[in-house]
Nucleic acid binder design. Structure first.
Lengths: 115, 115
DNA sequence: TGCATATATAAGCATATAGTTATATGATAC
DNA sequence: GTATCATATAACTATATGCTTATATATGCA
């Protein structure tokens, strides 16, 4: 009766609640195309560092994103191994591309690059 | 740059916030397969009538559902004309079928039928 | 008309949420 | 070592949310 793609309603509503915040939803859309570090989010959202950090923690707590330290920065990326990634991915595909935010960062010389 | 399917992030997050409640998300999944009236929801969710009514109002306010009076009952259905219906529909497709709730209602003789 | 049923609304309350400021941790540079 | 930069956490506060109870509205029927 239940397909391999169907998700527990409890879990699904928890995920949707987290995505139901403009800042976090935009973060996920941005992460869909590039990993970002905390200070980039701070610059993009013009929001305090603790506020950004707390949003990221919520996304991390239910494992929607992964963190990885690179030098003094911590980069976040989408956790494509999440059991409900198909749902998350399909939602993000309906949203407009946020490449503009990244371009703006580059113009301001704020893009962090660790390669 | 923006495809015909892409949605304003503000609006999308508002929709996701509303769907980020287990009761409302389950309501939408139920409505995907059959219209329901308020008293059916009350029986299914074992929740007070005002609580159900308030959830439905939120869904109605952003036009995710439509209401239609049939005799003394008011039936709710999904608004497939909603501009963001493709997003909503794709979310619901990832969720498990809730037909069992309706069968339970029928067994208890609580299913409302106005045809 | 009057009463029962179905639904909506209002007011109040407890909890959740998203921000703030202050402080702690951890890595790098000197 | 100490200073600096990047990030996380803690404590607090204002607002939002989801329920409750009480009441209002609308339909159907005797």
């Amino acid at each position: 009766m239940k397909t391999t793609e169907s998700i527990d309603l409890q879990k699904a509503s928890q995920i949707l609640k987290l995505l139901g915040d403009k800042t976090r939803l935009t973060m996920m859309k941005l992460l869909e195309s590039h990993d970002c570090c905390v200070c980039e989010f701070v610059a993009i959202f013009k929001m305090s560092q603790p506020a950004i950090s707390q949003h990221l923690r919520k996304l991390r707590d239910i494992e929607l994103v992964k963190e990885e330290r690179r030098g003094q920065w911590i980069f976040y990326s989408i956790n494509q191994e999440h059991g409900d990634y198909p749902l998350i991915s399909s939602i993000l595909h309906h949203l407009p591309d946020q490449g503009g935010s990244i371009s703006d960062l580059e113009e301001q010389g704020l893009r962090v690059c660790c390669e």
